[in-house]
């Protein structure tokens, strides 16, 4: 199997994962509605409650963006579990293609949809009044940091999906992992406003560092150690879960 063949097969399988978005309007709408709903509910409604609409939008949107992106990392493992469950995976395995192509296609396709989701979320954010106050370089750095973090989590998701008995159990498992990460963080509420134990967890939680990094990189203010801590987490998660996912994958495709 030459590298060129492997790449071509990976691209074909990326296409295969993205083309349903074009086939079925429902799929695309579902993908776009999630960021829109989350922003409307958390940013607009909570903002209106707080009285200071524009200040709330500036504070909350980076957090909601983090949560939207986090939720979407489930897709990677969920689709892998589906492919295993309904036999598509076996079809690929019985064919003379690179063993890595199906996993590569999945990750590439999910990175593409994640980029789209982040772009839509920022667009919707700007409609409800969110303004980036920093330099384009800092803003791009923020987007890159978010994408790198979700890619790292995508490998965790892949690992869970490859181990799960079914797509449904993958979804349950992933939700159990994501909820404390997503809501036990400073994405929406500052740690200072939390009760003791939760505060301790929120300060430890990598998602807090990510959300705080994004706030600084998009709206200004001291970046501090948050970006470095987030980068550290990205490296640690990637170093841990890429080998785990690849090993589980190798066992499943044998």
């Amino acid at each position: 199997m030459t590298a060129r063949n492997t790449f071509a097969q990976g691209m074909t399988l990326t296409w295969r994962s993205l083309v349903p978005l074009r086939n079925q309007p429902g799929e695309l709408i579902q993908l776009l509605l999630q960021p829109i709903f989350m922003i409307v509910i958390f940013v607009v409604v909570f903002g209106a409650m707080s009285g200071d609409q524009s200040g709330a939008v500036q504070r909350l949107l980076p957090g909601v963006l983090t949560q939207v992106a986090l939720t979407q990392t489930i897709t990677t493992g969920l689709r892998l579990a589906e492919d295993i469950g309904n036999g598509v995976f076996d079809r690929f395995r019985s064919m003379p293609i690179a063993r890595s192509a199906p996993l590569m296609g999945r990750i590439l396709a999910d990175t593409a949809t994640m980029t789209l989701t982040v772009a839509v979320a920022l667009l919707v954010g700007s409609v409800v009044g969110f303004r980036i106050r920093t330099s384009p370089l800092e803003a791009l750095g923020g987007v890159a940091l978010l994408l790198a973090f979700t890619l790292a989590l995508g490998w965790v998701s892949a690992w869970l999906g490859l181990r799960a008995r079914s797509a449904a159990s993958m979804q349950g498992l992933a939700t159990a992992v994501l909820l404390p990460l997503s809501f036990g963080s400073t994405a929406l509420i500052p740690a200072a406003n939390m009760p003791g134990a939760l505060q301790w967890w929120a300060r430890l939680n990598p998602v807090s560092h990510l959300a705080d990094s994004l706030r600084s990189l998009f709206t200004g203010g001291p970046v501090g150690a948050n970006v470095w801590i987030t980068l550290g987490w990205i490296v640690a998660i990637t170093a841990c879960f890429v080998p785990l996912a690849v090993r589980t994958y190798a066992r499943r495709i044998r």
Binding site: R16, V19, P20, N23, Q24, E27, N86, G87, V88, D90, R91, S94
Partner: peptide, 15 residues
């Protein structure tokens, strides 16, 4: 080889 039947399957979301 070509494989068909119970276990090899088609991608439901593709035409």
């Amino acid at each position: 080889i070509g494989l068909t039947g119970q276990y090899a399957s088609v991608d439901e979301k593709l035409t």
